[in-house]
Write a protein that binds this DNA or RNA. Structure first.
Lengths: 212, 212
DNA sequence: GACCAGATTTGACCGTGGTCATTTAACCGC
DNA sequence: GCGGTTAAATGACCACGGTCAAATCTGGTC
């Protein structure tokens, strides 16, 4: 994977990626067309598919690259020491994932590994994210009756669900952080949760329940 | 919705649905082709799209119908009185969702409402499912420091994540129920989990931790 | 039963992702 | 440089979801 090919091939691949980035900057991920990329790169259509098994794999790579950049920041950052700090620290990564509905869908589909010995770039990035979160969660205020790993996976489960809701017109008057908070509080600080009765701790979906 | 059309139209629609069911029985959801449905129904292609905005909406309806049937059973069933009963009771609904990867993807994309005042059939079915789960969770052994609704939504978040993992070749030596259990235990019974410091009963839990 | 307005159906057509046999370029030993 | 072998690129072609102006049917009115 490191040295897959001759120089010409690498150049072509880079041209394709650059062209795709340009197109995405102009049209967004959703509006990306293989024909447009290929035209901009000055290359035949078949060439595209010689380099990327399908369109989604290219997109996955581009999203993963953005995520990796954010991960680098997260890994360097000091661990947060309370729930709100935790949420704030992860917010940039989460906003990245919710920029575009299309992007979120790709992530939802690929954030778990999809084939034996064949973790896609997004799945790999998510493993790294789990590591960061696990690490942060091992510390002081958070529950310890359960492995950090399990805790981290739970955080992702709630995050994905809240993000999905973010795209639902019925519920989007409330921000991601606000939506996510009650879940994480109940998940990460189960003993504290009983103490407060402030604010509507109803689930984010209750708005929909009303409407139904 | 009740009286959408003249009789001819309703007949055509039913023929399309029946044809689609036949095709799905033969080819699975993934293999469904609009052309095949239309041919089998003896109808022109345009007619299909006069009845269903797109292919996915038909599929959504068919999946929702199966889910509704299961919901009827769930609503009639007695509430489970412990965690394993809870999991066992919901298992049929969850297996329904994991029959086919394609089906799961559609569910993941449509289980939350997608447009104002326009809950799709799947979103509606999921509201019903939340109601059932909320109801079951209000009872005895489960935590009460948090609303039933929030608890129910959390259950779905974990269920969806575990299902996604179910399709990941790297992790599929472990069944859905076994994968899900440690999450639900930690989510629904946080105090029981906290009771034991060295966590001797977390056998299933550590399996999930290991999987990483 | 002749007529009409609106609902329904039709099928040729299009956009777009993806395939593959063929052609062209790169590398290597001589 | 010169054949020859493998890697890379090409573009005509296909599959499939979806569109739309035109044709056809239906139920109601006189």
């Amino acid at each position: 994977m490191s040295q897959p090919a001759q120089a010409r091939s690498r150049r072509t691949r880079n041209r394709l990626i650059a062209a795709a980035e340009d197109e995405i900057a102009a049209q967004g991920f959703e509006g990306l067309r293989v024909d447009a990329v290929v035209r901009r790169a000055g290359v035949a259509k078949g060439t595209f598919f010689a380099h990327f098994a399908d369109k989604e794999i290219l997109i996955e790579e581009l999203i993963a690259a953005r995520l990796e950049a954010e991960l680098q920041r997260l890994e360097a950052a000091p661990p947060p020491h309370d729930l709100d700090g935790f949420i704030a620290a992860l917010m940039p990564a989460w906003s990245l994932m919710t920029q575009e509905r299309y992007v979120f869908d790709v992530i939802a589909r690929h954030s778990t590994a999809m084939g034996i010995a064949n973790l896609g770039p997004l799945a790999i990035a998510f493993q790294r994210l789990y590591d960061v979160i696990s690490d942060w969660l091992s510390g002081a205020p958070f529950r310890t009756d359960v492995t950090r790993r399990l805790l981290a996976e739970g955080v992702q489960a709630f995050a994905l669900q809240s993000m999905a809701l973010e795209f639902c017109a019925l519920h989007n008057q409330i921000g991601l952080a606000a939506r996510l908070r009650p879940y994480l509080r109940a998940w990460l600080l189960p003993n504290h949760a009983a103490g407060t009765k402030k604010a509507p701790e109803t689930g984010a979906l209750s708005v929909a329940a009303e409407a139904a």
